Computed example of a mutant assay.
Amino acid sequence: MAKPMTKTQLVAALAEEMDTDKKSAGAALDAVCNLITKEVSGGGAVTLPGVGKIYCRERPERMVRNPATGEQFKKDADKVVKMTIAKALKDSVNG
């Protein structure tokens, strides 16, 4: 399995793809990340065409077990961020 691309590598690749400098590419990446964070934390969803959909889902209160002790306890309701991968990306990965 290949190592994940770091932010520095992503900014450099984005700058090359956009034919601009790394500072502008880094600012664009930060702006997109901030918009996604703001929208999803507010209960909305963001669709990245060709990549997937990022959204927040609420999980109900439930019983969980401590694997070390086997003790069961009630975990409060919480929210979790999910991502559904686009069919185009799945197809390009699978050949």
Rank of each mutant, 00 (worst) to 15 (best):
P49S: 12
K82Y: 15
E16P: 06
V40Q: 01
N34W: 04
E58W: 09
K7T: 08
V32Q: 03
K38I: 10
A28F: 07
M1R: 13
G26M: 09
T84D: 11
K38D: 13
T69V: 04
D30I: 02
M18H: 08
A68K: 15
L14S: 04
A68L: 11
D78M: 12
A13L: 07
K74D: 05
V80E: 09
R59S: 10
M18G: 10
M1P: 10
E16A: 14
V64T: 11
F73Y: 12
V11R: 00
R57W: 11
D91A: 10
V11Q: 00
T47V: 12
K38W: 04
I85G: 03
G43Q: 10
L48E: 03
A25S: 03
D78S: 13
V80S: 12
A13S: 15
A12T: 05
L48T: 04
V46S: 09
M18Q: 10
S92T: 14
L10E: 00
D19V: 14
T37A: 14
M63N: 09
I36V: 14
S24R: 09
A68E: 13
M63A: 12
P49I: 09
A15P: 01
V40M: 01
T47H: 08
C56P: 09
A28P: 01
E17W: 09
D19K: 15
C56S: 14
T20A: 11
R62S: 06
I54H: 02
L48V: 09
E61Q: 15
G42S: 02
G52C: 02
V81T: 11
K75R: 12
T20Y: 08
M5C: 12
A31Y: 00
T47P: 05
R59Q: 08
V46F: 05
V93A: 04
V93R: 03
A13H: 12
M63Q: 14
A28R: 02
K87P: 03
T69Q: 12
I85L: 11
S92M: 04
A31G: 05
G95T: 01
M63V: 15
G52K: 03
M1Y: 12
T69M: 07
I85P: 04
K82T: 06
A77M: 05
Q72G: 06
S41T: 10
P60V: 08
V46R: 04
A45W: 00
E16T: 13
K82I: 11
E61A: 13
A45S: 14
C56R: 12
